[in-house]
Simulated assay, not measured.
Amino acid sequence: MFVIDAKERKIIITNDTTREVIEIREGETLKRKFLEGTQDKYDCILKLIDVDIIDPATQKKTGEKETKAFGQRVGNPHWIMEFKEEEYLIG
C-alpha cells in the first residue's frame, strides 16, 4: 500500500506484513520487475504528475486535479506508466 505526499514530492510505501515504511522521492530510481527472458530491460524513475479528475458518470473533466505516481523510463520522457507497487522491487 502506498500514499502520495504531493507537498514533499514523494510516495510512502508501507509493507502490509512487516509494517516497514519506505519513502521514494520524485526523480529517484524505481527497480522494475521483469519476466525471465525479457530482453528489453530498462530503468525507471518516479514522477509525480497532476492529472485531471474525470467524472465517471459524464466522462468529462471536473476542473479539479489530483497527484498520481508514475514510472518514467530513463532516457525517454514520453514513456510513462502509472505506478503499481507490485510491478517494482521495493526495499
Rank of each mutant, 00 (worst) to 15 (best):
14 T>Q: 12
2 F>N: 07
14 T>K: 14
70 F>I: 04
59 Q>H: 12
25 R>Y: 15
26 E>D: 07
50 D>A: 14
55 D>T: 07
50 D>W: 08
23 E>R: 06
65 K>Y: 09
40 D>R: 12
86 E>N: 11
23 E>P: 01
50 D>Q: 14
61 K>E: 14
52 D>T: 05
6 A>F: 01
40 D>P: 00
63 G>P: 04
34 F>C: 09
33 K>G: 02
69 A>K: 08
1 M>V: 08
1 M>P: 05
58 T>F: 09
88 Y>C: 03
59 Q>Y: 09
14 T>Y: 01
17 T>K: 14
7 K>T: 13
1 M>R: 07
78 H>Q: 14
45 I>H: 05
21 V>F: 01
2 F>V: 02
73 R>H: 01
34 F>K: 09
8 E>Q: 14
2 F>E: 07
1 M>C: 02
60 K>P: 00
81 M>L: 10
48 L>C: 08
34 F>E: 10
75 G>V: 09
63 G>Y: 04
65 K>W: 01
82 E>A: 11
47 K>G: 00
51 V>P: 00
45 I>T: 15
42 Y>L: 02
28 E>Y: 03
43 D>E: 15
72 Q>S: 02
74 V>T: 13
61 K>R: 15
70 F>H: 03
56 P>E: 14
28 E>H: 05
85 E>I: 14
70 F>A: 05
31 K>F: 10
87 E>P: 00
68 K>M: 14
60 K>Y: 03
82 E>T: 11
91 G>R: 11
68 K>E: 12
44 C>V: 04
81 M>T: 12
29 T>Q: 12
17 T>Y: 10
23 E>I: 11
57 A>L: 14
2 F>L: 10
54 I>D: 04
62 T>A: 09
31 K>N: 12
81 M>V: 13
9 R>H: 11
50 D>N: 14
66 E>D: 06
3 V>Q: 11
77 P>F: 06
45 I>D: 06
1 M>H: 09
38 T>W: 02
24 I>E: 06
78 H>K: 15
16 D>A: 13
15 N>L: 01
76 N>A: 12
